[in-house]
Simulated scan of single mutants.
Amino acid sequence: MPDGEDIPHLVDLQEEPDVELLTARDSNHNQYWLYTRSNPDTAQIITYEEKESITNSSYNGKKPIKVIVHGWNNDGNANVNRMVKTAILDTLDANVIVVDWKRLASSNYVSASNGIPAVGDHLGHFLTWLIDTAGGDWNEVHLIGFSLGAHAVGIAGRTTKRKPARVTALDPAGPLWVGNPHALNTSSAHYVEAIHTDGGFLGMSEALAHADFFPNSGKHPQPGCWISTCSHSRSYRLFASSIYTDHFVAKRCNDTTEAHNNQCNGSEFNMGNCDINKRGSGIYGLSTERKWPF
């Protein structure tokens, strides 16, 4: 499994979880890092149930809310956060909230995976408190998660006071999550989108959203990738690129078999972008290039 810089690490899926960590009173207390166009590079920490942390920040309830959640062995400074946050602020005047859940994320994979329900639940309660306290429009809330973070935002969307407008799942984690009742599903937002790039290994190959995209068959190797971790992280690189130019035109597939064989020729629907009003459904395939902007 990859860390925050896409370096692979050997994982034992039979390893015992860290029960002490999972049951610690503050084990689900995420950190919330706010970035806006006023502070695009230096995070402002918003602390749950501390109103002063909002009033002393650049948060503006009249602007859209974009939330990014990293995966295992990552933290708030992970590459996924940097790339997606920068792309959003370069193209949209928004509140970007990066969720840092490094205490659990830096534990073994089994522990981190078992802790995802608490991470997502806490995020859902945080967003409800934030909007109730400082304003915000649920129709302008977009949750974005990579790998384990994809399931965390799915849980958050099912926990919030009102349903978010959109969830984007970037290669949702596969190990320990196929058939998991806490996994991402279509009840997490009005529109749930998944981008699959390493299906069957680090990511899920199953369709689980309103719209599921399978670029380059949705599995390893993605063009220009030699190791699976590169294919896994390709999901957020494609998404970041799509925010700038929205150029990934996918075609509808009859089923996942067509998607996995990149043989889709149906109606067109764009993959990615940050359009909060985006709506659609189905399974889609497309081809991309080897290098940025792909």
Rank of each mutant, 00 (worst) to 15 (best):
A112M: 05
T257K: 13
R103E: 15
V80Y: 00
D137E: 01
I227M: 09
T186L: 00
G280L: 11
V167T: 11
I155F: 03
I7S: 07
E52F: 07
Y35V: 05
A87E: 09
I276G: 06
K51G: 05
T197A: 12
S107E: 00
V80A: 07
K251A: 07
T133E: 00
D26P: 00
D26V: 10
H125S: 12
T245Q: 13
N262S: 14
N74P: 05
P164F: 03
I227K: 02
H70K: 12
P17S: 07
V119H: 08
K219A: 14
F201Q: 11
A112C: 06
N262D: 15
N270G: 09
T42V: 15
F269R: 03
D171V: 02
D6S: 09
I283R: 09
S235P: 05
E49F: 09
R37D: 09
G4A: 11
Y48M: 10
D12A: 12
A43P: 10
V96P: 10
N79A: 12
A240E: 12
L238R: 06
A87C: 05
F248W: 03
A156N: 06
V19R: 14
V110A: 01
N74A: 14
S57A: 09
H142N: 10
S242Y: 06
W33F: 14
D132V: 04
A94S: 15
N254K: 14
Q31A: 15
S147P: 11
D93C: 07
D246V: 12
P175F: 10
S53G: 02
M1Q: 09
D41T: 13
G218L: 00
W226F: 12
N216K: 12
H70V: 02
S187K: 11
F294N: 08
A87L: 08
K63L: 15
V80I: 14
C253H: 04
V67A: 07
